[in-house]
Design a protein around this nucleic acid. Sequence first.
RNA 1: GCCGGCGUAGCUCAGGGGCAGAGCAACUGAUUCGUAAUCAGUAGGUCGGGGGUUCAAUUCCCCCCGCCGGCUCCA
Length: 638
Amino acid sequence: MIKVIFPDGAESSFEEGATFFDVLKGHDREILKRSVAVRVDGVLRDLRSTLKGDSAVRVDPVTSDSKEGLEILRHSASHVMAQAVRSLYGNVKLAIGPAIEDGFYYDFDTEKPFTPEDLEKIEGRMREIVKADYRFEGEVLSKKDALDLFAGMGEKYKEEIISELTDTTVSVYKQADFTDLCRGPHVPSTGYVKAFKLTGTAGAYWRGSEKNKMLQRVYGTAFPTKEALQVHLDRLEEAKKRDHRKLGKELDLFSTSEEIGSGLVLWHPNGSTVRMLIEEFWKKEHVKGDYSIIYTPHIAQVGLWKTSGHWDFYRENLFSPMDVEGQEYIVKPMNCPFHIQIYKSHLRSYRDLPVRYAELGTVYRYERSGVLHGLLRVRGFTQDDAHIFMTPSQLEGEIKGVLKFTLYILKSFGFNEFDIYLSTRPEKYVGDLENWEKAEAALKGALESSGLGYTIDPGEGVFYGPKIDIKIKDVIGRSWQCSTIQVDFNLPERFDVTYRDENGAESRPIMIHRALMGSLERFFGCLVEHYAGAFPTWFAPVQAVILTVTDRNNEYAGSVYRRLREEGFRVELDKRNEKLGFKIREAQMRKIPYQLVIGDSEEKEGKLAPRKRGGETLDPMPVDEFVELLRGEDKPAS
RNA sequence: GCCGGCGUAGCUCAGGGGCAGAGCAACUGAUUCGUAAUCAGUAGGUCGGGGGUUCAAUUCCCCCCGCCGGCUCCA
């Protein structure tokens, strides 16, 4: 007999050879219903596998609503999909089919790419397979037997995977006549994959390398219940509604033009107003934060970037040089060399440090056409850039200061949840190891003494130094990479940046590169999606629109309009000969925070009747009172 | 850059080898109206661009451009 200990502390005994089905059945039938696998002394196993060995084991059910369980479910769904594809299309080779963040995919090597109709066909066949409820049966083979098996099936990708495994045995799973290489575990049978949907196709390189063959990937998702699947699909719908590209058009915020070129953004008056307000706020806060605001040119001699190292590291992303009287110039891909030149325009003393230069610097990078995406990935964008030059002993304190400043700015725009990452030295790097270690330690120290939780992203640092990235969470839970704080020992070296230390000796300062919003384009796109276009009053392009009920009210409405304008508010006056309902609808669709209704009764009493964007109507109030109300909202969140 | 899809009026979209369609927006007129669409009329197009097949191409084929979903990349 083997003693089984459950997570709640309960214990029972079973014969060796009992399946985990039997084990759970005796413990809790409800949990068994939701279980897709078990953890046995910490190791994931199939429900169908059996108890053996030790005198006592701990058994934790893995339910489909847990993170692990969901992964198992989705992984099984990918096998169901592979089975469907295999049965529908003859000459298909299987590559890999893992569970991912929001679902699963499977890569196939096919003669013809899948069409949307194929997707429906595959989904239909998957439903048949689910209905047939085939058992997932695991089997362990020797490496050689497995190689023979998959070689016999012509599965060259599986062969490649197996031959690179170091284990002496490999496991395979079968359902009906379909066999796949798989570590497992799986749900007990295909019937468990009740709620799934195929979501798209894509080309994907074998093993993620451009040098390899492009395979056909099919994406799908699966959930424990139809309801959970629907919630997920609704969330995708919601994200679609918030898409900044769609809202950008609807709210007349920005556009791009085929005649101008890809990835180059035109900021329309509405979008420009938001940007202007962001920039004004940004500048004011940077002055308060002891930064000097500077401006630098858009083109410069290519030598600057040869010195910086970017010419070697990022040449394929730089726009081609232009010839200016025999000198090669490029349009700038970053601002740092300019800031360094300003620093170097004087001899600096340790007493001058830290020196903080901030610039809303517009840069241009040649992004490959396939990667462009709305405002989030463009070829011309404005960084809210700054470079801080400091002594080594100032480093940690400066990083702390930047962290605090960053969170303050982000919170001002209504973002309150963050994921913080510390990216360490990548494979391709410059500089010596000692400096890298110092820099990583300084970043870590600043995070820890600021009491901020973070995740380490190994090898994701920039070639010249480690960095902290802050991702903001939007209102529907998506992450956006905006802020970055990078330590750099390299550029000061390359540009021979110096200061005189306490002993009058020439010393090397350290630089921090940092951007809080990243780029204004990206940050704006994020704001659009976070607020679904309904911007807070303080940076809404139009804060209020006055709506007259009839022509009789035009004169009074005009005086209210002038008053609000004089107070500095962004107000419009809609005195078109239209019904009130029509004007409200239009203002509502433009997501203007306040609609101010003025009819005969308001006019008589010198009032206005505010209606909020959400539909709430306020009692008519004197104009002065509304001025106070609006003034109260016309400022950042924190 | 690569794989796939798409590109028709300002916007959203229908159509399809034989005269180019709707709704909204625009414009004109009527209506003076109280919290999400008043009515009528008018105008609007190189069907992304170039080439080819055809008596005839917006429709079929090829190339290019742009956009979308991914892959790869992202200082």
